[in-house]
Design a binder for these strands. Structure first.
Length: 890
RNA sequence: GGGCGCAUAGCUCAGGGGUAGAGCACCCGCCUUACAAGCGGGAUGCCGGUGGUUCGAAUCCACCUGCGCCCACCA
């Protein structure tokens, strides 16, 4: 950063030369809250627009992914608010059962304590304390981001109302038989000491070994293949395929299980793949889901050989060993007995890990609560199939159906303390009672409540309606359900979206099916990645703290960076350079507004008579109309990246780089009436531009818009697009002005050509050069001489004007006195290069037009366009040729 | 093992049957009274490979290669 110009003392007082976000953001946010803009009236008139926040976990703080999510949601919400909808963005947090419990347990560990040292009640109390302090940080971050949430409706998954909703839902499903308790093989985390649902398990390919072991002896033997030899201690059979001739004679006989002295039967089961391994499978019903099923079919005993920490409990020399210590120990013992046959083959296979702590999951037989998902999942699939819920982008539907149509029952009990306690009581003689909310649970001798809590996703699955007051029929629920859009990352499509669909449709089954859905549209965005497209992770050290960027670049810059990169369903790559670019954009707007205000621009109630407007005025209004329409349409399609880009280029390239420069000419022309009209257009376009940008970058637009208009807030200003309700500012079609657009396009081409010449000839940008615009009067640009001269710093030719160089463009020959001899070589190089390009173009178009197929089949307009291109290239080439020949010899 | 997606400028990505685009980075020149967080100018690509459809393919189709993601109870 060099060459700072000292700030002139004459700057207008109201706006500093640079935008300083820190001085604006907090003040503006507090102002919005005080004004109550974000709190809709449930009893009001007009359509509602609702988005519930994907509740962040109370653990930790918001990361850049949240910032993306919030930016997109806030943009949607703010636009609808400006359109006049009763707009609700409902904030809140998730208690995040297992994650939060782990965090607090780690805190305790620092004090040398475990949760058992505290006891359940004290521990839960401790988690609440922790939530109080951590949750506050998240809310503060949301304010910094500018989230226009309704803080009066903030909820928490463990608050009283939501807990009642959870209880109600449980009871509902319980009474319908859709919740049941069963002894099953579930995913067990030996570190967290709890059951996990299928999707909480992450499968990772790992290098293992496939080991062949001989069971039995001599003719009475069979070789099985396994990756987990230690589980053989729990084997209760060997299974082969019923049609496998190799083993037909063994079926029904028993073999000796090595190391145990037990004999186990050889059974036939169609599950066995004869092609794999030896075609014989050891069956361990208590430690493998497949084997459990086989065991059920054949009535085999299930021998549990490990405890909840995955330590061997089977009697014998291995007792007390961890599962991973037991593996080599068992293998060594088998080798000693000569049981390991053939070679141990390296084998890559997928192994499940706890989604929370990464520990290898242990399939474990245990008694758990399940949701019978088949009927719920069917309904969840149908709602998307029949279009009541629209997934965006639509490619995601394939994944959704894939999952929802083939889903195992959902294990909902967790052996944790932090969460909603399962509302089931057990009594004498196997009595099981689930009291309704508010109902007195059974008490007395022998009665106790289930110690487990519910999966955290059970409560988040109710979020779109529990937050609005369900199970009560509240005004909020009537006004704001179904919610309008669910905006979230595709990574929690299954965890969360599918659950909300299942539970929402079920809870609202009494409604008209079209209005039972939890949301009408699901808009999925991607993950935030680093500048090289890599996933962000703490270990890689490439994470971005949103607060850090807000401090350094401003909240608007952070938001704009994220919005600009957000293409539907695709990941967003961000880097500091882009944040700086976005910051620069905000500053550019700031200075454009500053210029407008310094020059007396104002936002008019009505535009001046279009017939009286200058061509640049008509042009920028025409461009604004077109941009407004595009942005409006792109909002409907969640094309945040594209609409950001459109606004960026309109603001910077068209409004700042061309329109403001052209307006300067009018303002300085001395024609006060024309200058006044330009002031009005300057202000009008800025006004609309700021409104269009407000959903993306709320702070800087608020500051500038209020300065421009003198009104209270752009938050509640009317949205300029077509979709506005009521008194929206519809752009009349008359503002579209192809003629003005063509003229200004021509002007910019001419100006650029001459600038290029000036640059090549080493003329300093500020230097005035005498020039004649020969032929200008015969072109559509005839009326723009003053503008052209101003933009190019051309002065009128004086007596004895002797041009030394010339540029031809748009039918105009600009002859310049270059103040000394021109650089002939530079000019020759340029002309030759342009000539080659023109010749290429001629060749291309000529060949095309000579193609009979083309002239016969191509649409007339394409042919006409090609003819025009050829003619233009010819003219261009001739002019270049003439200029080349006119050059003095080297 | 199934499913989906992606390969376009140095990087990250838009686009999409008929002149290859943006941002950043890069090169040259500038303090030109809104903005040096700026202004003006410039360079940059066998649009992954092979075949097909077509008058015409970066764009549509098939296959191939290389990546990425999701799902999955072959031990």
């Amino acid at each position: 950063m060099t060459g700072h110009r000292p700030t002139t003392p004459a700057e207008p007082a109201q706006l500093a030369p640079q935008y300083a976000p820190a001085q604006v953001e907090t003040r503006r946010y507090e102002g919005w809250i005080d004004a109550g803009y974000f709190t809709p009236d449930a009893d009001g008139d007009g359509p509602a627009y609702t988005i519930v926040i994907p509740p962040p976990n109370v653990t930790g703080s918001l990361h850049i992914g949240h910032a993306l999510d919030h930016t997109l949601i806030d943009a949607l919400i703010r636009r609808r608010r400006m359109q006049g909808y009763r707009t609700l963005w409902l904030p809140g947090m998730d208690h995040a059962g297992i994650a939060t419990q782990n965090v607090v347990e780690r805190e305790l560990a620092k004090e040398g304590l475990s949760r058992h040292d505290l006891g359940r009640e004290k521990f839960v109390e401790r988690v609440w304390q922790w939530k109080a302090s951590s949750g506050g940080a998240i809310l503060g971050q949301m304010r910094r981001l500018g989230d226009s949430v309704d803080w009066t409706r903030e909820r928490f998954t463990m608050d009283e109302g939501l807990s009642r909703a959870v209880h109600t839902m449980f009871k509902l499903l319980f009474d319908e038989g859709l919740i049941y308790r069963a002894e099953r093989i579930i995913n067990w985390c030996p570190r967290c000491l709890t059951a996990l649902s299928d999707i909480e398990v992450e499968h990772v390919d790992e290098d293992g070994e496939l080991i062949s072991i001989r069971y039995g002896d001599g003719d009475d033997s069979i070789v099985v293949a396994t990756t987990r030899p230690e589980t053989m201690l729990g084997d209760t059979a060997v299974a082969v395929h019923p049609d496998d001739p190799r083993y037909a004679h063994m079926i029904g006989r028993t073999v000796e299980l090595p190391l145990t002295g037990r004999r186990i039967p050889v059974i036939a089961d169609p599950h066995v793949d004869p092609e794999f391994g030896t075609g014989a499978v050891k069956v361990t019903p208590a430690h493998d889901p497949n084997d459990f099923e086989i065991g059920r079919r054949h009535d085999l005993p299930a021998l549990t050989i490990m405890d909840e920490r995955a330590v061997i409990t089977a009697p014998g020399p291995f007792r007390g060993l961890d599962r991973f210590e037991a593996r080599p120990a068992v293998l060594a013992a088998l080798r000693e007995e000569g049981r390991v046959v053939a070679e141990i083959r390296p084998y890559r296979h997928s192994v499940g890990h706890c989604g929370r702590c990464g520990t290898t999951v242990e399939p474990r037989l245990s008694l758990q609560w399940f949701v019978k998902v088949a009927p719920l999942a069917k309904a969840a699939g149908d709602a998307v199939r029949d279009g009541r819920v629209r997934l965006h982008p639509p490619e995601m539907a394939a994944r959704y159906f894939d999952w929802v149509d083939d889903m195992h029952d959902w294990c909902i009990s967790r052996q944790l303390w932090w969460g909603h306690r399962i509302p089931v009581f057990y009594g004498p003689n196997g009595a099981v009672v689930s009291p309704a909310p508010g109902e007195q649970p059974p008490t007395g001798e022998g009665w106790h409540q289930d110690p487990d809590v519910l999966d955290t996703w059970f409560s988040s699955g109710l979020w779109p309606f529990s937050t609005l007051g369900w199970p009560d029929d509240t005004p909020d629920l009537r006004a704001f359900y179904p919610t309008s859009v669910l905006v979230t990352g595709y990574d929690i499509l299954f965890f969360w979206v599918a659950r909300m669909m299942m539970l929402g449709l079920h809870a609202m089954a009494g409604r008209d099916p079209a209005d039972a859905v939890p949301f009408r549209t699901v808009a999925l965005h991607g993950l935030v990645r680093d500048s090289r497209g890599r996933k962000m992770s703490k270990s890689r050290g490439n994470t971005v703290d949103p607060l850090d960027w807000i401090d350094r670049f401003g909240a608007d810059a952070l938001r704009f960076t994220l919005a600009r990169g957000a293409n539907p369903g695709a990941d967003v790559a961000v880097s500091e350079e882009w944040a700086a670019g976005a910051r620069n954009f905000c500053n550019k707007l700031w200075n454009a507004a500053r210029f407008a205000l310094m020059n007396g621009a104002h936002a008019p109630d009505a535009l001046p008579d279009p017939m009286a407007l200058s061509v640049p005025d008509r042009w920028i209004l025409s461009r604004l109309a077109s941009v407004t329409e595009r942005v409006d349409a792109q909002f409907e399609e969640f094309e945040f990246g594209k609409l950001s880009e459109v606004l960026y280029h309109f603001a910077w390239d068209e409004y700042c780089d061309w329109y403001l420069e052209l307006a300067k000419v009018t303002l300085a022309s001395g024609d006060e009436a024309a200058a006044d009209r330009s002031r009005a257009v300057l202000g009008y376009v800025l006004d609309r531009l700021l409104r269009l940008l407000h959903p993306l970058i709320p702070f800087v637009t608020e500051e500038l818009w209020t300065a421009l208009t003198g009104e209270d807030s752009v938050v509640v200003a009317a949205w300029p697009g077509r979709q506005a309700l009521g008194a929206g500012t519809r752009e009349p079609p008359a503002l579209r002005d192809p003629e003005a657009e063509a003229e200004i396009t021509s002007l910019t081409r001419l100006v650029t050509q001459v600038r290029r010449f000036r640059s090549d000839q080493g003329l300093r940008p500020g230097q005035r050069v005498a020039a004649r615009l020969a032929g200008l009067e015969r072109t559509p640009l005839a009326g723009h001489e003053a503008s052209i001269r101003a933009l190019l710093r051309l002065s009128a030719p004086a007596d004895g004007f002797a041009p030394t160089g010339s540029v031809q463009s748009e039918g105009v020959t600009v002859e310049l006195d270059t103040v000394g001899a021109i650089d002939v070589e530079a000019e020759r190089r340029r002309l030759e290069k342009d000539l080659v390009a023109a010749a290429d173009e001629m060749g291309r178009t000529q060949r095309k037009l000579a193609n009979p197929g083309f002239t016969a089949k191509a649409p007339a307009e394409v042919i006409e366009k090609t003819r025009q291109r050829l003619a233009a290239a010819q003219t261009e080439a001739e002019a270049l040729q003439a200029r080349l020949e006119a050059l003095p010899p080297a």
